[in-house]
């Protein structure tokens, strides 16, 4: 999301010289999430990085502290190390801090990173404070399981000024008690929620989930490996939103939108996100 221009910047990453456009982030310059090997948690493709999780920290020569690669733009002659003792320690601790306080069981990559950085969330003991709490089920379309919330702020930004502008949720409270909340924690039907599900789309940890998926997981029938994903176009109004239909056993179980769609940027409205039932109601 950072603006880029064509002026090239040359820097050194892990001893290798790299030339990228001005405005590129260190993470992008290092090859992005897939190539760089830098772990990310709060980073999302359609949201300006909040860099709150601090797992993507890298070492930049001359900087007193580590820097978040997901959002720090490159500078000429920067010397970056994506792995070092300091970097690895910070990543290990972030993984432990989150792993010991949040349910990361549905978060991609965590298991591998824990192994890679030697993170042992269990060492904080059974008494370590967590964010465990009951799942919020207050409507038919999606559930909120904040025991899985790492406070990446993506749902807040998607609901707020980056996309949906409904501002139904924000971070409330402070410190470890910070949490995603409607005003006074009112239920979604009592809030301004329009059920666009754009928060679900950006949630990296499974804290926000289609009710269909939640129920199937509870019943043990959710089989992601057996699902197909077909890209098509929404059948409602004339905007032409791109849909990805997740189908298991001939049934649509979930709808997403491609983050790189120039029409939706991964966003949909309630009809596109949840209005698929009409094709399979009998």
């Amino acid at each position: 999301m950072t603006g880029t221009t064509d002026t090239p910047v040359t820097l050194t990453i892990d001893g290798r010289e790299v030339t990228v456009p001005t405005g590129t982030t260190i993470l992008q310059a290092a090859g992005g999430r897939s190539e760089s090997g830098i772990p990310t948690l709060c980073y999302g493709e359609t949201i300006t990085p909040k860099n709150a999780c601090r797992v993507c920290m890298v070492e930049v020569e001359g900087s007193r502290t580590l820097v978040p690669s997901c959002s720090r733009p490159v500078e000429p002659d920067m010397v970056v190390r994506t792995r070092s003792e300091r970097v690895d320690h910070a990543r290990k601790m972030v993984l432990e801090f989150l792993g010991s306080s949040v349910d990361l069981s549905l978060t991609d990559g965590v298991e591998e990173w824990n192994a890679e950085y030697g993170a042992a969330p269990g060492r904080y003991g059974a008494d370590a404070a967590t964010v465990a709490q009951p799942v919020k089920v207050d409507n038919d379309l999606y559930v909120r399981d904040y025991s899985k919330c790492i406070l990446c702020y993506q749902c807040v930004d998607a609901c707020g000024d980056q996309w949906q502008h409904s501002f139904v949720i924000d971070v409330a409270g402070r410190g470890f008690a910070s949490h995603i909340s409607t005003e006074n924690d009112v239920s979604l039907p009592d809030s301004a929620c329009v059920y666009c599900g754009n928060c679900i789309q950006v949630c990296p940890t499974g804290a926000l989930m289609f009710t269909t998926e939640f129920d199937m997981r509870a019943a043990g029938t959710w089989r992601e490996d057996d699902q197909t994903v077909t890209e098509t176009v929404c059948a409602f109004c004339g905007v032409g939103c791109n849909l990805e239909l997740h189908v298991q056993d001939g049934t649509i179980v979930k709808v997403t939108s491609p983050p790189d769609s120039p029409i939706t940027h991964g966003n949909l409205c309630i009809k596109g996100r949840f209005g698929f039932q009409h094709a399979q109601n009998t």
Partner: peptide, 15 residues
């Protein structure tokens, strides 16, 4: 909702 509700009536909108 949408038009005469034939399609949008198929899901349960809380609103």
């Amino acid at each position: 909702s949408y038009n005469t509700g034939v399609q949008s009536g198929g899901y349960r909108s809380p609103n």
